[in-house]
């Protein structure tokens, strides 16, 4: 289709249009039409190839090599040493790897679930609110969404601060008997939330859910606006409960939206780094590492062990690709590939 129209133009047929600028057409029609898309793709392909695909191959190779200081120093560089599966057996023997893997998986499951549940609930709520109120709430959640990940970590670190944090202040407000009954203590001043792995992850989950539910809510709202009101009308006439309406109408119709949101959330939450880095103050607490942090710590804390860092990164990538493979396949099938 594009070919014919270009030939009409390039066929030397002098156009009567006075708008035609001399020089321009010759420049463009000097190239064979079939080559144009390839030329347009060159810069993008170069970037993607050199900065994403080739490095990924390198990670896979380095995972089987020993790459330490002698291999990366600028002078007197030695070639990387081939060590087979040593890096893997080394990290698999290390209990930090297993706690990092557990932290990654448990965090991803909890954070993704909570984000989706809270986000969907708020999206449904926004759809029911009046115009003024929903605008107010949307502007509010926009702020939470816009905060950069590093600042998110900083804000929640401050809210959970042991001495002057507002969370401890709020917990102190609870009646002593209730606080003692539920938590076994009444005085919260000085409670250090960011020392133990479990409480670091609790704060991390709150941080990530706070920052990511707005996107889900706004997307669900956009999806809900597309559902014809008659469907809900009919459900109401039939006396369906709110939960039943959601399960039988809203959810099935928004299924593609939910599929995308779930995968995006998984991708984002699996490799969370910035917020965790801030909350625990750099790669300090080994028990609280996740896979990204573990890989970073292995490769960039002295002595640098880039080989095992690459091995951990490879494990992370493989898990992520497997989890998202189903979705990619579906997209590829859907995609208009003609």
């Amino acid at each position: 289709m594009t070919d014919t129209s270009t030939r009409t133009r390039g066929g030397g047929n002098p156009s009567p249009s006075g708008r035609r600028r001399p020089g321009r057409p010759a420049k463009a029609s000097g190239l064979p039409v079939w080559s144009i898309p390839y030329l347009l793709l060159i810069p993008g392909l170069l970037v993607i190839g050199a900065l994403l695909l080739y490095p990924m191959v390198q990670v896979a190779i380095m995972a089987f090599q020993k790459v330490g200081l002698p291999q990366i120093r600028p002078v007197n560089k030695r070639p990387p040493e081939w060590v087979g599966t040593d890096n893997f057996s080394q990290i698999f023997d290390n209990e930090i790897f297993w706690s990092a893997l557990r932290n990654t998986l448990v965090f991803a499951v909890l954070a993704v679930t909570l984000t989706l549940v809270v986000g969907t609930a708020v999206g449904v709520l926004l759809n029911k609110l009046g115009k003024k109120m929903s605008t107010l709430v949307i502007v509010g959640i926009m702020f939470a969404w816009a905060v950069p990940p590093v600042a998110q970590g900083i804000i929640w670190k401050w809210l959970f601060d042991a001495e002057a944090g507002i969370i401890n202040w709020a917990l102190n407000l609870l009646p002593d008997w209730l606080s003692t009954l539920v938590f076994g203590r009444a005085d919260w001043t000085g409670e250090p939330w960011l020392n133990d792995a479990w409480s670091i992850y609790m704060v991390l989950i709150i941080t990530v859910v706070w920052a990511s539910f707005p996107f889900i809510a706004v997307s669900v709202l956009a999806g809900l606006k597309g559902i014809p009101a008659e469907l809900y009308e009919a459900a109401r006439v039939d006396g369906a409960s709110a939960w039943r309406t959601f399960r039988k109408i809203t959810f099935p119709l928004l299924r593609p939206v939910f599929a995308v949101l779930t995968v995006l959330s998984i991708i984002w939450d699996f490799k969370v780094f910035s917020q965790l880095y801030v909350l625990m103050g750099g790669p300090t607490n080994r028990e609280a590492f996740n896979l990204s942090m573990y890989s970073y710590a292995e490769a960039f804390r002295s002595p640098p062990k880039m080989g095992s860092g690459a091995a951990i990164a490879l494990v992370l990538t493989v898990i992520l690709l497997v989890v998202t493979a189903v979705y990619v396949r579906q997209l590829v099938k859907q995609e208009d590939m003609t």
Partner: peptide, 12 residues
């Protein structure tokens, strides 16, 4: 390429 975690590409 979109699915590859950036953190994994840090080292190379």
């Amino acid at each position: 390429a979109q699915m590859i975690p950036a953190e994994a590409l840090l080292i190379p």
